[in-house]
């Protein structure tokens, strides 16, 4: 396996520095929220990791479709990389959200549209990994997981809509009903967008590493098959 390319090495360091910077910005630059207090600072990272989770989810769906069109196994590696990153980041988003929700809503968890949708998304990814585990032939594994990702990515938005009919208590930050009445100060907005950008860079770095790992795993598998013959 080739050593890490220079760009990736630079990205490693840049990601670490940016993460530290975003942390410092959330802690010391952004003002303390009047009503919720210091716990509100969790919000900057909660939004950012949820954003990365969505990015990975989209990337997985797109990679799945491209795989079905091209039948090139490298897109399967891309897909599973995106899925794993999404799985972890959504889990972090849920954990951070719970930390914030306990003082803000008085409970760690509530069956609210976004929370429920996030939980179901996690279940779909776990199901996908289980599906992959019980298939040995790489070509079939790639085909089935592309199909399942496709089905899942269509089902998730409908899930969100289906639960949204009941009233939501999750704050809407961006979009209609957003910034105007959430009363965020400009420093807070700036911190949020910086941490979104920072986590997007971190996503790229991790994605790259995970794709490299997938390529190595494929090589190992091929070498093993060769040894068995």
């Amino acid at each position: 396996m080739k050593p890490q390319p220079l760009v990736l090495k630079i990205l490693n360091i840049v990601s670490a520095l940016l993460l530290a910077g975003a942390f410092a910005m959330a802690m010391w630059y952004a003002p303390v929220e009047k009503v919720m207090g210091a716990v509100q600072k969790v919000f900057y990272f909660h939004v950012a990791v949820a954003w990365v989770g969505m990015l990975g989810f989209l990337a997985a769906a797109v990679a799945g479709i491209i795989y079905l069109r091209t039948r090139d196994l490298k897109w399967d590696i891309v897909e599973v990389a995106a899925v794993e990153i999404s799985l972890v980041f959504f889990l972090i988003a849920i954990a951070l959200g719970s930390i914030w929700a306990r003082p803000a809503w008085g409970t760690y968890w509530t069956w609210e549209p976004r929370l429920t949708t996030a939980a179901i998304l996690e279940m779909i990814y776990i199901a996908l990994l289980l599906l992959r585990q019980s298939l040995e032939e790489p070509e079939k594994r790639a085909r089935f997981s592309a199909v399942y990702t496709l089905v899942g990515s269509i089902s998730v938005p409908i899930t969100f809509l289906s639960i949204r009919f009941s009233r939501t208590i999750h704050p809407v930050v961006i979009g209609p009903g957003g910034s105007a009445d959430t009363g965020m100060m400009p420093e807070m907005l700036a911190t949020m967008f910086v941490s979104l950008a920072v986590f997007s860079v971190i996503f790229v770095t991790l994605f790259w590493h995970r794709i490299r790992l997938g390529q190595m795993a494929e090589k190992v598998e091929q070498a093993r098959l060769k040894a068995m013959q």
Partner: peptide, 29 residues
Amino acid sequence: LLSSMAVQTRTRDVLLPILLFPVAVPVLV
């Protein structure tokens, strides 16, 4: 669709509900 996928895997019977339930949530809700 999912059952025709599940029967071709190693864990077959166990896998179908795991694959089906999260995707079928909207219809059940």
